Amino acid sequence: MPGGGPEMDDYMETLKDEEDALWENVECNRHMLSRYINPAKLTPYLRQCKVIDEQDEDEVLNAPMLPSKINRAGRLLDILHTKGQRGYVVFLESLEFYYPELYKLVTGKEPTRRFSTIVVEEGHEGLTHFLMNEVIKLQQQMKAKDLQRCELLARLRQLEDEKKQMTLTRVELLTFQERYYKMKEERDSYNDELVKVKDDNYNLAMRYAQLSEEKNMAVMRSRDLQLEIDQLKHRLNKMEEECKLERNQSLKLKNDIENRPKKEQVLELERENEMLKTKNQELQSIIQAGKRSLPDSDKAILDILEHDRKEALEDRQELVNRIYNLQEEARQAEELRDKYLEEKEDLELKCSTLGKDCEMYKHRMNTVMLQLEEVERERDQAFHSRDEAQTQYSQCLIEKDKYRKQIRELEEKNDEMRIEMVRREACIVNLESKLRRLSKDSNNLDQSLPRNLPVTIISQDFGDASPRTNGQEADDSSTSEESPEDSKYFLPYHPPQRRMNLKGIQLQRAKS
């Protein structure tokens, strides 16, 4: 015994090295194993092979420090690593049964499904019991997946119906949107047309105001020219009257000059006056001389005659003075006559000038009245044309509004008919989907599995289990394997941990 101590140590070291070499393959693929292994699927088989106990299973599945599946799978690998070579062998058998691809990844061999460990530990009855539990578990999982698949199909059909409904609603909204954009385009076109009409109206108003201003300026210029013409006519008439007055005065002077006595007659009258003065002096001298030589009687007679002569001279002087006064009065009367005649001529000139001015103003008033009548006639014609244009424009607008209203009513009726057609199509689609759903539900009910399987069917299934373990590994792997896509769409199922009653199965096998 003492001599065998070193050999035992060498043997233990060799086993430990082999164990480390075995687990080295697992550690190399630890990331892939932790990512894809579900500990809840492996722990029943590991407990059946007595590699882990209930406490280890509870620690792996329910520990609060292991929230994710990767953490739980890593903890399970750590626990199996502590179990040595047996933990490695049982772990590979569980991978061979549940995850053939991972088994091939770790060992590089094809899975054979021999279950040597569980046969050694529990015997064939334990293997049968384990396989029966796994089959029931798989059936329950398949039923749950079928239910989930039916629910998802129903949800899918519902979503398809909602999608069709949303599509129809979208078509309806597109119809309304198209109608909205069309009405918006019509409104924009009408606004552009309105702005264009306003611009045209403004341009016409500006043109009309400009023409009116030009016409008023032309009328004012015409009036100024007419006033200048009238003033020139007035000056012409005044000059004609002055010329006529000057002509009359010149004719009067000419007549006075023609009626003036001649120079010879004046000289002859002056000679006669001198001769008479000479004779008068001679007679006076004779009379003076006679007075001195005459007697007293003759002197008395001469005195009487002288007195008579003096009286006659006085009378004559009075007559001469009277004649002079009369001549002066006649001259003054002639001057007054000439003055009055001049005033008369001036008044006649003024009267004729005023008459011509009156005629001029009368003509001017007639011209202004004619212009006013023409302006009123043009204004009435413009008003009439404007009223006709406004009436025609309003009539066109009324007809346009009428046609637009008819078009809008027809478009609304068309839209309502399209919407009604879309709604009826939606109703038809809904009815078809309901009919299809009812038909599929009836087919699913016919094809669904019963909840409680008979014992004979279970025994028959387990009677055929042994050949399947040898020759149909691919079928078992397809039913027991969970793909990543299934984990996305289906909830994980945790079967209840219970042991099955095998009395009925044993009785059935005894009868057979």
Rank of each mutant, 00 (worst) to 15 (best):
G4M: 11
P6A: 12
E7N: 07
E7D: 10
E7Y: 13
M8Y: 13
D9G: 12
D10H: 12
D10I: 05
D10C: 11
M12F: 14
E13R: 08
E13C: 12
E13A: 10
E13P: 13
L15G: 10
K16S: 08
D17L: 08
D17G: 10
D20V: 11
A21F: 04
A21Q: 02
L22A: 09
E24I: 09
N25K: 14
N25V: 04
V26P: 06
V26C: 00
V26E: 07
M32K: 10
L33W: 02
S34L: 06
S34R: 04
S34I: 04
S34E: 01
R35F: 03
R35I: 06
R35H: 08
Y36I: 12
N38C: 01
K41M: 07
K41R: 13
K41P: 02
L42Q: 08
L42A: 03
L42M: 11
T43Q: 03
P44N: 05
Y45R: 06
L46H: 05
Q48W: 07
Q48D: 10
C49Y: 15
V51D: 04
V51L: 10
V51M: 09
D53Y: 07
D53L: 07
E54Y: 11
E57Y: 01
V60Y: 00
L61Q: 06
A63R: 06
P64R: 05
L66F: 08
P67E: 02
P67S: 08
S68R: 02
S68G: 05
I70C: 12
I70L: 06
N71M: 07
R72I: 05
R72G: 03
R72E: 01
R75H: 13
L76V: 01
L77H: 00
L77Q: 02
L80T: 03
H81L: 05
H81R: 11
T82V: 10
G84R: 02
G84P: 03
R86I: 09
R86F: 00
V90R: 15
F91T: 15
L92P: 08
E93V: 11
E93R: 15
S94E: 09
S94L: 05
E96D: 05
Y103D: 00
K104M: 10
K104L: 00
L105V: 00
V106E: 00
V106G: 01
T107N: 02
G108N: 09
E110H: 00
E110S: 03
R114K: 04
S116D: 10
I118G: 00
V119C: 15
E121R: 11
E122D: 15
H124C: 15
H124V: 13
G126K: 11
G126W: 15
L127A: 06
T128F: 12
F130A: 15
F130M: 15
L131Q: 05
N133V: 07
E134S: 13
E134T: 15
E134A: 14
V135T: 07
I136L: 08
K137N: 11
L138K: 11
Q139Y: 10
M142P: 05
M142G: 09
A144C: 12
